[in-house]
Each structure stands twice: as C-alpha cells, then as structure tokens.
C-alpha cells in the first residue's frame, strides 16, 4: 500500500503536471475573476469564498481523468487487480495520492489567492479549514468518477458531467462555511456537515469505485 502511494507521488513529481497544473489553474482563475467582475473590493469580498471553492473544485477535476486511465492503458491496473492488495485499497490510496498532489497544494495556496480576491480577514482560517476538510471528498468522489469512465476513449468530458453534480453538497457546505466565517457568523454547522460528507465518501465510495473498476477490466 505504501509502495503504491510512493510510486504515485514519484510519478506525479517526475512526469510533471501533477503538482503544478492544478495550482496554476487555481491561480489563473483567481486572476481572471477580478478581471471579469471588476476591481471593486466589496464585490470581490462577497464572492471570494465561492470563487475560491469553485476554483479548487475545478482544479481538482483537471487531473482526475489520469487517476486510473494511465494505469489502465499500460496494463498496471490488470496487475494491481491480481495483486494481493484489495482493489478498494488501491482506489483509496490513489485518491490519497491525488489529494496530496492536487488538494493539499490548493489548501496551502488558497490564503494567498484570498488576498487577490480581497477575502475578509476573519475568513482565512475558515477557508483553510474548510478546504482541508472538503478537498479529500473531492478526490474520493473524483476517484469514483474516474473509475466509472476508465475504459472510455474520451472519458474526460463525460467524467466532468458525472462528477460535478456529485460535488454539489461539498461545494455548498464548504463555501457556506467560508462565507459565514467572513461575515463573522458561526460556521461550525456547515463545517461539520462538510466533514461528514468527506468521512462518508472516504468510507463508502472506494467500494463503489473498485466495483466499477472490476466491471471496466473484464
């Protein structure tokens, strides 16, 4: 299991694109939105929580289609399926690797982008906390979507269509926690709901994803 994690991390670093791409996309989005909306600080402060969460979500989506597709193409997935580790574990580890290479950098970069978007002072803690709790769910749900579409030749676009509706609860609770924090309102409730979704997804979706992978392999 550890070997699979270190391999995936090593691949992400060596092959490039793993770490940098999502982060660069996140940055570009945080630059483009003010250019589109206008420089008014009050407006930006209002929409900053939502923009940051939508940006994180889309940045996560970028690298999802390669989660299983590369292993499927080069035959590794066949071999992993016949290896002594359960396929559910493979899914969970790969989602974890995806989170470490995509989700975690986004969490760390988000406060900097918050400055660009004029995010109010009290919201920074909530932003980091909500992303920290919520982005793992994005990776796990994404792993499920990637597992469904792994056998398809142009699965990337279809996967977005499947995954984005599944992201709705995560997005709503995550962004809500940040905007409540920004207004100085208590934000514990959405945060707890967000943590619940993450915990539930991480516990159950690997089984669904592994089932989908087995179907796609046969």
């Amino acid at each position: 299991m550890i070997a699979l994690l270190t391999r995936d991390l090593r691949l992400a670093i060596r092959a490039g694109g793993g770490f940098g791409l999502g982060l660069a996309f996140f940055l570009i989005l945080a630059v483009l939105v003010p250019l589109g909306v206008g420089p008014e600080g009050r407006v930006l402060a209002l929409i900053a929580p939502g923009i940051l969460w939508v940006g994180a979500l889309l940045a996560c989506l970028l690298s999802l289609d390669r989660m299983f597709a590369l292993d499927f193409e080069d035959g590794s997935l066949d071999l992993l399926a016949t290896a002594p580790i359960p396929l559910e574990g493979v899914v969970a580890i790969k989602a974890l690797a995806h989170w470490l290479t995509t989700g975690l950098p986004l969490v760390l970069a988000a406060p900097v982008l918050g400055i660009l978007l004029n995010l109010p002072g009290p919201a920074y803690g909530w932003l980091v906390l909500s992303l920290l709790l919520g982005t793992p769910a994005l990776s796990v749900i994404g792993a499920f979507g990637a597992a469904l579409t792994v056998g398809l030749k142009r699965g990337g676009l279809l996967m977005s269509l499947l995954v984005l509706p599944l992201y709705v609860p995560t997005l709503v609770f995550g962004a809500e926690a940040v905007s409540r924090g920004a207004q100085g309102l208590p934000a514990a409730t959405p945060l707890l709901l967000l943590a619940g979704i993450t915990a539930g997804s991480a516990a159950l979706l690997p089984f669904a994803a592994a089932h989908a992978l087995r179907i796609n392999l046969r």
Partner: peptide, 29 residues
C-alpha cells in the same frame, strides 16, 4: 493468490527506472 498474470501490456511506468519498477511490484507482493 497463486497466479501471476502477464498480459500484452507490461504494466511499466515510463518515468521509473528498471529497478524502481521491479521494486514497486516486489513491494506490492
């Protein structure tokens, strides 16, 4: 857990070295 399958594709990672590829599969098993 008795079978080792080797299909048409070798399951190699292009950016890993020969030894790293083998070490990975050894660790998995």
């Amino acid at each position: 857990d008795a079978m080792a399958y080797a299909g048409h594709a070798d399951g190699l990672k292009a950016v890993l070295s020969v030894a790293e590829n083998l070490h990975f599969w050894a660790a998995i098993h």
